[in-house]
């Protein structure tokens, strides 16, 4: 973990399903815009690591699991609305 990383995310995707690809792109864009240099994203493909999906209780894809600073509400979908995501992460101030 690099210095300055405050936000850690785990994003579950299903292979290269369109909505999964969108989610990866959307999350990347959001983090670059609002959380520059303080984030880390792990992308897990359920097709390759189904056991992890089971143990994490992930049954819909794509799904975002915010891990740090605090595990918070899961977000399911293509993560297309940045304001919604930030609100869910408790980052309304950043969005403003």
């Amino acid at each position: 973990m690099k210095r300055g990383v405050r936000f850690k995310f785990r994003l579950y995707v299903a292979g290269n399903a369109p909505n999964s690809l969108q989610a990866v792109a959307n999350l990347g864009a959001l983090c670059r815009t609002h959380l520059p240099d303080q984030f880390e994203i792990e992308v897990v493909d359920v097709l390759r690591e189904p056991k992890r999906a089971l143990s994490d209780g992930v049954f819909m894809t794509p799904m975002l699991l915010p891990l740090e600073p605090l595990p918070s509400r899961r977000i399911v979908g293509t993560l297309s609305r940045a304001d919604q995501i930030l609100m869910a992460l408790g980052l309304e101030a950043v969005a403003a």
């Binding site: 969108q22 977000i75 979908g77």
Partner: peptide, 10 residues
């Protein structure tokens, strides 16, 4: 939280 499309593929 729902944000955009998702499916049961996972």
């Amino acid at each position: 939280v729902q944000s955009g499309e998702f499916d049961l593929g996972g």
